[in-house]
Write a protein that binds this DNA or RNA. Structure first.
Length: 270
DNA sequence: ATTCTATGTCGAA
DNA sequence: TCGACCTAGAATA
């Protein structure tokens, strides 16, 4: 479930579990074997997320491990060591606990300049205290690209994925195909503040929950739903189902190769 | 047994 | 805009 909150949560978990400890590093699957061996036995001294990218550093190893989970990668930490390898484990870290990386789009060692270059290509990340929303605004307010596409562009904003994109547009009543230049500065600031709240909540809970209390099914006199993607949402993957606010069927279209979900009635603003 | 799908990104056409 | 790629579980046959 990799949007930015997943990576920040993972960085926190890696620090808590391993910082200051010498780790065993291996690549059971083999595709990260030479790199894993360079790390083996070194003390993990940092883990940090920038958008959907994770960087892990080790004492006396100049390079950092750079991980991107892609669409379906996972990095799962379990108690204990010497656990049986299940499936394709690209990278395994062990020190009291075992962290198994599977299905990652990217797992590589980068030199410090390469790390800096990778981070420099990312827009501001709502989960980072040093993020500047005006950097994103600068790109948005001069663009003819739909705001729904701009939100997904990692050079505009770091860490927002398909769920947060759909949900922040709904919560701010913004029509997804509105050109960036038609979005007001005030509305952008509200969307940014909303992303900060939603994504921080996501880091805390490990889920994406965006439904306000007054729209919870119980509050609306309906039975609770069980979304299968780890959270309660207004529109994401709810095509054809009734909007939780107005009851109109939620719509779907493909935009830039990704499914976009929205309520045509509630989302009317630019 | 095979196909499909997924909260992502890149590069070729 | 499209296919390729990383993997596993669900859906379909």
């Amino acid at each position: 479930m990799p949007e930015g909150h997943t990576l920040h949560r993972l960085a926190d978990e890696l620090r808590t579990t391993y910082v200051g400890r010498a780790v065993t590093s291996s690549s059971p699957q083999g595709r990260f074997a030479a790199e894993a061996a360079r790390i083996d036995g070194h003390v993990l001294d940092g883990a940090e997320a920038w958008g959907k990218h994770l960087f892990v550093s080790f004492a006396d190893v100049p390079e950092q491990a750079h991980v991107h989970l892609g669409l379906y990668g996972t990095f799962v930490i379990s108690p204990g060591v010497d656990r049986p390898v299940v499936g394709q484990v690209r990278w395994r870290l062990e020190a009291g606990s075992t962290a198994d990386l599977r299905g990652a789009n990217t797992c590589e060692l980068l030199t410090p300049p390469e790390v800096d270059a990778r981070i420099a290509r990312l827009g501001p990340d709502p989960l980072r205290a040093d993020a500047d929303p005006d950097r994103a605004w600068h790109r948005i307010h001069r663009s003819t690209t739909p705001i729904a596409a701009l939100l997904m562009d990692q050079a505009v904003l770091g860490g927002v994925g398909n769920v947060y994109r759909a949900e922040v547009l709904f919560r701010n009543e913004v029509a997804p195909m509105t050109a960036g230049r038609r979005v007001t500065h005030k509305r952008w600031n509200a969307m940014w503040a909303d992303l900060v709240d939603l994504m921080r909540d996501g880091v805390r809970t490990g889920r994406i929950d965006t439904v306000r209390p007054e729209h919870e099914p119980e509050a609306m006199g309906r039975p609770p739903r069980a979304d299968d993607h780890g959270g309660e949402v207004y529109v994401y993957r709810r095509e054809g189902q009734a909007c939780l606010v107005c009851g109109m069927p939620v719509r779907r279209r493909v935009l830039a190769g990704r499914n976009l979900f929205w309520c045509p009635t509630c989302q009317h603003r630019g």
